[in-house]
Amino acid sequence: MIHAIKVAQEERLFAGKSVSVAVITRGRPPGYLRVAFSAVTGLLRGLWLTLGYLWSPEAIVTRQYPENRATLQLTERFRGNLRFKFPNEKAQEDHAAFIEQLAHETQTHAHVAADLVREENETRWYHNCTGCGKCQEACPNASIKVFTRQGEILEDREVDRFVWRLDSCMFCNACVQACPWDAIEMTGGFENAVYDRRLLVYNLNRLAGPRINYIEEEENPDVRKRMVERRDRYGGEVPLNGFALPNLPPVTTPMESGSRAIDADAQARLT
């Protein structure tokens, strides 16, 4: 330290209050020889510190990201891609076991085996979503659009397609917090690079249909099957981003009826 630096504590009156203050003061500038000496020692001390990493490389905190992919552990609360929770755990486990066995039999990797499966067990896609749209209201960016449909069996509104726009999502977790049914979660997925941004808008639900408890109340397996309908990741119309910002009041003009017609027309085109 070529300049003697002192930190002295004192009480000072400021804005009508006594504030405890630490004042940084410095001594007189040192002479030329002293500066020259400190210059050398100061640099050497810094170099000595960096040299330490040579014999204690375990102190390095850098993570070698693409190389450590296999062992990468993300925390439980990590806010990555949004997805549906699939609460039918038994079906999930059965499916995983089935894929593992298939991979073993065909001597391939699990993700290759998963592609081989044509007919999937639909029960593993049962979800908690009722299509209430709370997440859509909570989203600050209008990244979520929940399309609902009139259910045939239960005669109630139910989720048809849950569209999530990854490209405009800011991962604020508002939708997960707002969901009263614990239907969605943010996961550890973060590798989202694609060559076409249209691939970033997709359906989260695999089944259009009512909430899982309504399906499980039904005993007849045929009726259960009719309650739900498969939905792909892509497919169906895509909402234009932000066409209806939450809480944005509709534009009103003196021509009430005319503006409403325009509004309805615009919505029909955009949704």
Partner: peptide
């Protein structure tokens, strides 16, 4: 209990050292 760290000169070095403190 904490101190509000203040400098005396108001130069770059004070701004540097205030943050360290």
């Amino acid at each position: 209990q904490f101190n509000v760290v203040v400098g005396t000169v108001g130069d770059c070095w004070d701004r540097y050292y205030v943050r360290l403190e």
